[in-house]
Design a protein around this nucleic acid. Structure first.
Lengths: 332, 332
DNA sequence: GGGCGAGCATGAATCGATTCATCAGTTGGG
DNA sequence: CCCAACTGATGAATCGATTCATGCTCGCCC
């Protein structure tokens, strides 16, 4: 029933030993006699002792928390990533401070300042445009960082091969006979957008076709359902040949596109095939199950945390196309 | 270009003042001359000074981080909650340590120990069966806690009125003419399950009907799409009168149920109306837009954090039924 | 029995920010 | 011209865990 927190001193007093011994029980149990150890452990239990992480970290100079900044915690895609990180950290008794930048440089800067003050062991970030410079400042403070879901030769990073993802999606659509494909892309300053386009171009060329004929790109400022719908309208109502397939930046964008297709009474995949990205958990549950490129987010997070804690270098993962009815006539 | 972290001592040295003065600049700027203040601030900028949160907390005895334990970070419903918490904490320069219990008592215990060691300012929890006792231990360490999404007279808590949510859903379905309603519920040891049932019963009674005739309950061990589908199969293939409407524990369960309805070629809402819970962001985007009870998760999180930081007592929120095509013939 | 080394326990010093009693310097009034 | 009053700066002490040079004890061997 002690109202206050017990310290090593209290434990030492109760056990009748010195504070150094208590610390030894905690950190070098082998160097303490069986007898004293049990005595100390009893005292700790009796006082409900929890070591003070602040004091520990102040002395040791190294923290047991890791900062994570993702673009949007609301997106299941990123929480899956966070989950992978957490799993890895738990193995080493570390915790995770999770922040959501909302793609807002100001928010990101504020979080990085807080993390620096916390003296975190390291920072894991899904980068936005302004990120790199600020990470340099952290580095100068001795705080390492890892980029996630984005590759950089300047910086330790883990990522998924978006070129491969784009290639797989478009190869599949071409194999299904499509010769005019709409890419509902994100902003061009996102590496993901560019890499997937490159993969798409490669797939078209590999089939002996001309990318300029086959691919039509619409860049959306935000990757939301409404934008996806708007982008599709823009493409369908515009001049030029009509696409017969859509490759969407993610499943939410695909959702918006499919909504517009229904509005127009177009069948999926008969009139228009659709392939999404991320394979969110509801993709298979839609009226027309959605083909989607699955990314190993949990492994990615695991790898990012592992890279920080142990310096094991594994950096690039392969995505995998999951084919469902939305792009495969035989399945409908 | 100093490789190491600068401390107040370094700043004091460079600015030619004492450490006490530096601390005053940081914490009581009014009590320092304009001239010395700018001198110190320049030194801080030059050294890229960040105050060490560990030392600060060790001395002050109070932390600027808050622990949050939710049942599943993978569920958008909980991340929205976390987002609300984060928004409130950011106002007071606090950060959030987010943990996912996965409904596993062992994981939860481990996280609570870590949070105790961190000396967090407080803990916000979506409780599972084993939670309450452990929170008592924290309390004895002087760490306050707030229950979220669950009400308790024993404990400070914020919650949504699940009785009201259940009542709204069933009142709506009865108004649509349904007289045999299947409640695809969660485990009975979840407060949410029980409260929504109570609301459902009240709605039936308010309509002058007998709950035993109208309501059929299937308890699912897990609230997943597959379980939702299985629960519906169990109900449809079982003896007794067939339901004409389904009230699902959440939107994911509703998704599974709708999948089975499609398999059987039953129309929604013609043959079977469906109402979900949580109003997840894809609910409106499904082929048959899903009616769902919306919960103000972000506000709930905000309120929980506010309760911790300021002791403003606001505890209960109202959910709101969003009617869409899945339960309303006129909208199809 | 004396000497020696191994095995344990000790406690002062340390990390960095904060606090507060104390001191130095300035001003104004008598 | 002196003292009181006040403003602003000072630096030693503090928080709790860890470390390491030091000291103590015991057992063993010559």
């Amino acid at each position: 029933m002690t109202a206050q927190r017990a310290s090593v001193k209290d434990v030492a007093l109760l056990a009748g030993v010195s504070v150094g011994t208590v610390s030894n029980v905690l950190n070098r149990p082998a160097s303490v006699t069986e007898k004293t150890r049990t005595k100390v452990e009893q005292a700790m239990a009796e006082l409900n002792f929890h070591r003070n992480a602040s004091a520990r970290q102040l002395r040791a100079g190294v923290s047991r928390t890791v900062g994570v900044i993702v673009m949007d915690v609301g997106n299941p895609y990123y929480t899956e990533l966070a989950r992978g990180i957490e799993d890895r950290l738990a193995n080493d008794d570390h915790t995770l401070i999770l922040c959501s930048s909302d793609e807002d440089p100001h928010r990101e800067a504020q979080f990085l300042r807080l993390l620096a003050e916390q003296g975190v062991r390291g920072v894991l970030v899904t980068p936005i445009a302004s990120t790199m410079q600020r990470l340099g400042e952290l580095r100068r403070l001795g705080i390492p960082s890892v980029l996630m879901d984005s590759l950089s030769s300047q910086h330790t990073s883990v990522g998924v091969d978006h070129v491969s993802g784009g290639r797989q999606a478009i190869t599949h659509l071409i194999a299904q006979g499509h010769r005019r494909i709409l890419y509902l892309a994100g902003p061009t300053d996102l590496q993901q957008t560019r890499h997937r386009l490159r993969g798409a171009v490669e797939a078209v060329q590999a089939a002996g076709l001309d990318p300029a004929d086959v691919l039509q790109v619409v860049n959306l400022p935000y990757v939301t359902a409404n934008e996806g719908q708007r982008g599709l309208i823009e493409a369908l109502d515009g001049p030029g040949p009509q696409p017969t397939a859509v490759f969407a930046m993610n499943d939410v964008v695909a959702l918006g596109a499919m909504r517009e297709l229904r509005v127009r009474g177009l069948s999926i995949p008969g009139d228009m095939a659709v392939v999404g990205y991320d394979d969110l958990y509801f993709a298979a549950e839609l009226m027309t199950p959605l083909s989607s490129v699955r990314q190993p987010m949990r492994q990615l997070g695991w790898a990012a945390a592992d890279l920080l804690l142990t310096d094991h270098p594994h950096t690039m993962f392969e995505p995998e196309l999951i084919v469902r009815a939305s792009s495969d006539l035989r399945r409908t």
